[in-house]
């Protein structure tokens, strides 16, 4: 089965049937995801292009080093790794829900859908915390010879190169676009998570109401699953682009 080949001996392309043995809805979902990956791709590549076009770029380990309830402990990447795990785990529960759907096991689908929804909510909460932390933080920055206190916002970045000021090392303003791209791309991803969450909740309700049992298949759950995994897939690349390198 894993080989993914179609049963031989059938002329798959001769019309009157799907050449991929896939329902049109799934084809549309897959090609939509290809399309959407170009949207995300364009954002991430723009970010890369801008980053290579800048003389200085802050080290992400340095910007993302906080953890809730841990005060000022320097824990680079710890929190975002947690977020990654949450998303991967919710992907696993999603695929398990799809799996139960194949077996027409409504209770199983419900169980795993709930877990997926909780995972999505957890991810969004984490993102909310991270955004809040960045937007409300206070970092000393040397601006026009005076030390100011900045948060990381869509237009400001307090993580520029260090200079000596009054005998101390102080940061200068960093590239504005760090915040711009960070908030924009993670926001856009968060928006996808949010919409995926809404879709999942709808799927859950429809499962509860037995719609899919009436229809005889759980393909809608499968399509919602594809979208959810895609959100996970994109996160892997956002994680790469913003946090790791």
């Amino acid at each position: 089965m894993a080989s993914g080949s179609l049963p031989a001996g059938i002329k798959w392309w001769s019309g009157g049937k799907s050449p991929y043995n896939v329902n049109y809805g799934k084809i549309m979902m897959w090609y939509f995801l290809v399309s959407d990956s170009f949207t995300f791709g364009a954002f991430l590549i723009s970010y890369g292009s801008t980053r290579l076009g800048s003389d200085y770029w802050p080290d992400p380990n340095h910007v993302f080093n906080s953890f809730p309830f841990m005060g000022h402990a320097n824990l680079p990447l710890a929190f975002v790794s947690l977020m990654t795990f949450i998303l991967i785990f919710s992907s696993v529960t999603m695929v398990l829900a799809v799996h139960e759907g194949h077996k027409m096991n409504r209770k199983g689908v419900e169980k795993y859908m709930i877990m997926t929804i909780i995972g999505g909510l957890a991810f969004l909460s984490c993102q909310a915390w991270e955004w809040t932390h960045l937007l409300t933080g206070s970092h000393s920055v040397l601006v026009d010879g005076k030390v100011e206190h900045w948060a990381t916002t869509i237009t400001k970045n307090p993580f520029g190169p260090m200079v000596e000021h009054a005998g101390q090392l102080v940061a200068t303003p960093g590239p504005q676009l760090f915040g711009g791209f960070f908030f924009f791309i993670t926001g856009f991803h968060g928006f996808h998570v949010f919409s995926g969450l809404i879709i999942n909740i709808i799927m859950y309700i429809k499962t509860r109401l037995g719609h899919f049992d009436q229809r005889g298949h759980y393909e809608m759950v499968e399509k919602a699953g594809l979208y959810w995994h895609f959100v996970d897939l994109v996160w892997v690349f956002v994680f790469l682009a913003f946090y790791l390198i």
Binding site: V34, T39, A42, S46, T155, G180, F184
Partner: peptide, 23 residues
């Protein structure tokens, strides 16, 4: 394959216009 890139393109422009970013 190509229209989504236009979407990304104009959305960033929209941010530049209205949110003060400098993409």
């Amino acid at each position: 394959l190509s229209f989504p890139v236009l979407l990304s393109c104009v959305v960033l422009l929209f941010c530049d216009r209205n949110l003060g970013t400098s993409f």
